[in-house]
């Protein structure tokens, strides 16, 4: 089942002489439950693409459809609600609110919707991610790897249609990186979670079902494994 479809996405930064075309006519379609790795040189437009898919940014041109809704025409409030319900974003830097406990940070998307968490699911997530004993700590009291796990837990708590991860392991050592990727794979397999992952790491890319390569804002290859 197709969960994400984008057609002819263009993104141009700036205007006039010094304008940069970060994305140039991207067409991409992702099915539910797919684990897609996006690779490419630095500055090729990977992050830009991810931001547009997560409706954090708007494309200059083109259409993005997630679960049948066009997100490229939403207003700010609509796209904020879309973000909290349909996408989970994970960045290289963990982006936790420093003054809130890990528990509150994880439950943030639900709280924004004034919803009570499903206790069972919450426990399943924090147990899988191995941060069950850190819930009442503040982010600054956790290691980088633990913080990233918390960020992932936050992105999964709403059972989003898409999990978008921008170099989630870029900041971590080999062991931690592997654990994080394993966890992503686990959620991909167990929860049938659709994942788009940006990475520089060849080895990590090879863990994915599908590898999309971007160069100068264009998709130059799209390989499925197996």
């Amino acid at each position: 089942m197709e969960i994400l479809k984008c057609e002819g996405i263009r993104k141009v930064y700036g205007s006039g002489e010094n304008c940069v075309t970060a994305l140039d006519r991207i067409d991409l379609s992702v099915d539910k439950g797919e684990f897609v790795a996006i690779v490419g040189a630095s500055g090729s437009g990977k992050s830009t693409l991810l931001h547009i898919l997560g409706s954090v940014d708007q494309p200059t041109e083109g259409k993005v459809v997630v679960e049948g809704t066009d997100i490229s025409t939403m207003n700010r409030t609509q796209s904020a609600i879309f973000r909290r319900r349909k996408v989970g974003l994970v960045y290289q830097f963990y982006n936790l609110i420093p003054t809130l406990t890990i528990r509150k940070n994880i439950l943030m998307p639900l709280s924004l919707d004034k919803r009570k968490p499903n206790q069972e699911y919450f426990e399943q997530v924090v147990n899988t991610l191995g941060i069950a004993d850190k819930l009442d700590f503040l982010p600054s009291q956790l290691s980088g790897g633990q913080q990233q796990r918390a960020a992932i837990a936050r992105s999964l708590i709403y059972r989003p249609a898409l999990l978008l991860a921008d170099e989630p392991t870029g900041n971590l050592d080999q062991k931690n990186s592997k654990e994080i990727i394993d966890m992503l794979k686990l959620s991909n397999r167990n929860l049938n979670q659709t994942i788009l992952l940006i990475t520089h790491d060849e080895k990590i890319a090879l863990e994915a079902d599908r590898i999309v390569t971007i160069e100068d804002g264009r998709i130059i290859s799209d390989r499925k494994r197996g």
Binding site: R76, T77, A80, I81, I97, P98, M108, D113
Partner: peptide, 15 residues
């Protein structure tokens, strides 16, 4: 920056 985080997690401008 913190409100950026809130926003990326889905807080509306109104909230």
């Amino acid at each position: 920056h913190q409100f950026g985080i809130f926003s990326s997690v889905g807080a509306t401008p109104g909230q």
